[in-house]
Amino acid sequence: MKILVLISNVPDTTTKIRFKSDNTAFDDAGVQWIINPWDELALTRAVELKETGGVSLITVANVGNASTEPTLRKALAVGADDAIRIDVEARDAFEVATQLASVAKDYDLIMAGIEASDYNGSAVGGMLAELLDIASVSSVSGINIENGQLLFNREIDGGSQVLSVTTPVVAIVQKGIAKEPRIPAMRGIMMARKKELKVTAPVSAEDRTSFVRFELPPKKAACKMVAEDNAKELVRLLHEEAKVL
């Protein structure tokens, strides 16, 4: 079985968010980039499946410019066999899915994180399955191979569900797919040097959405302290300033 894991390159989750170009673009100056946490869990599960047998190849793919290569190199260090970078800065989820569709045809199982921690689009996995005209299963929290048969677990209201699926298939995975993201070992990091990171030219794709503007959440107001014997003042503040009473 060949697995393709989709890798999104996202700002570290502790990044202080700022915008530029009249609030229409993310300001990436000084930002540390990481593998999208859901994709990292997907990759970890793919590596575990390969270790237990039944998986012949794990490829990771990303749509982005050369600055995303350290993220792919980390994915190789964690245990992917090769990597593909489609050399374009995509503008929306449809473009990402269109680009990925051009390299995703030869895989039995495609794993996509349920969302990316930057724009929370939650769209690429489903779009990719449509573009490839194959099945997709969402909210997958477990993947196993038993006697060559692919089994997915899904959490549903009040219990869980086990699905038997045919390949090729897109699994849109969520938390629980792996216990914790695997940390690359020193040998893995060294071996990643020799693994292929293929850069391919983008296919032509249209962007169907664009950013109008970003807004930061309003700043939290300073905390006002009210003396414990002054309930009247508290009520006045809640009524006149907070306007919740």
Partner: peptide, 9 residues
Amino acid sequence: EEHKLIRNS
């Protein structure tokens, strides 16, 4: 980049 990956790991 490899040094940073080693350190971060």
